[in-house]
Design a protein around this nucleic acid. Structure first.
Lengths: 185, 185
DNA sequence: ATCGTTTTTTACCATAGGGTAAATATTTCA
DNA sequence: TGAAATATTTACCCTATGGTAAAAAACGAT
């Protein structure tokens, strides 16, 4: 869900030619995994087409949705990409999806060559940070019901692509609780 | 709690002289506010000495602690600083505190002059993002009790400086619940 | 269209944590 | 050092959400 006018498919594909980046892309079928826990994540992914879900497993093996990434957004496993920690995130395509793979080296080439790339990269990271910062606030001040309604209002596409169980764990509740909440609306 | 070897008091004070930044600092008494909701936040703060708490008010006017910022860490109101949105955060000194004020312009001067500053700034932002990303995960997978124990283990200084009510709202529970949890340990 | 699979809803009781209020304990400072 | 203010704990009952299980609905492949 991190969208940036600067890191757009148009710009990325232009830079790919101009700086000879050699960007690759990857096609995913519905339900196919782009990344699995345990694998290293050496790429930033840009979603050219389709829809991704990021999840991890809790101690009982339940899938907890951490994030959704629609068309024209970027996604990665930050713990693995930035910190070289063991990756715990799964990234799954919820429909036929096409992603652009951008390695650290390729990103650095862009940053070294494109004047405003540095600032824009910081902006994207700040956006990432504020989104999760805000999410902690919402968890601490709003009921599951109002978080559900807000998600509906702001990201209605999610409801077309994801299962309710995906959305429930994203909201931090069980599928049954979400079902109950929906009934009361 | 965002600490960086690069953005250290030594480096900041060296750069202050080298690039003639004109950095100012501000001394705060115990309980004094460095920032209030509604005020613009034009600075990154570096805590030279002391201990800060970041909080906001929920709809009923309760203070919800969002973050703690001990000595040698940086803090700001990201919504206001990065996005120029209306600031909703209060930053309060929990003891006598001395902070260094770093404006956007001053930070840009550092970034333009110090070769690795760009990368380090991105690193700090990534750290910020991952911390809150991880916090959402913990809220979704761990009980209040285990989050409390983790905080105790990893940030024991907080327990010397902050009130239990501050810690309770940081964990997303009431003071009474925290008290109950402590009793069971 | 139909059978089998998957997803969603419903129903039941259990539990963590909330809200209010009062009782202690601790701190502050005259 | 003692009174007042502040912080913490305790106790009560209440509510939102969890866990298990089963029913109902929707989806998908033949």
């Amino acid at each position: 869900m991190f969208q940036s006018k600067f890191f757009s498919s148009k710009n990325l594909l232009d830079w790919n030619i101009e700086y000879n980046l050699g960007l690759q892309n990857r096609l995913l079928k519905k339900d196919e995994l782009l990344l699995e826990a345990g694998q290293r994540c050496d790429y930033f992914y840009f979603v050219l087409k389709g829809f991704l879900r990021v999840y991890y497993l809790d101690i009982d093996g339940n899938e907890i949705t951490h994030w959704f990434s629609p068309k024209d957004t970027t996604i990665t496993s930050p713990f693995s990409y930035f910190n070289k920690e063991e990756n715990i995130l799964f990234i799954q395509a919820l429909e036929e999806t096409d992603v652009l793979l951008i390695s650290s080296d390729q990103l650095n080439t862009v940053i070294e060559n494109v004047p405003s790339a540095n600032k824009e990269a910081r902006k994207l990271l700040a956006e990432f940070a504020m989104t999760f910062s805000r999410r902690v606030m919402e968890i601490h001040t709003k009921t599951a019901e109002s978080r559900y309604l807000k998600l509906m209002a702001e990201h209605s596409t999610i409801f077309q692509k994801a299962k309710l169980s995906h959305i429930a764990s994203f909201l931090g509740i069980t599928q049954q609780s979400l079902s109950r909440i929906r009934k009361n609306i």
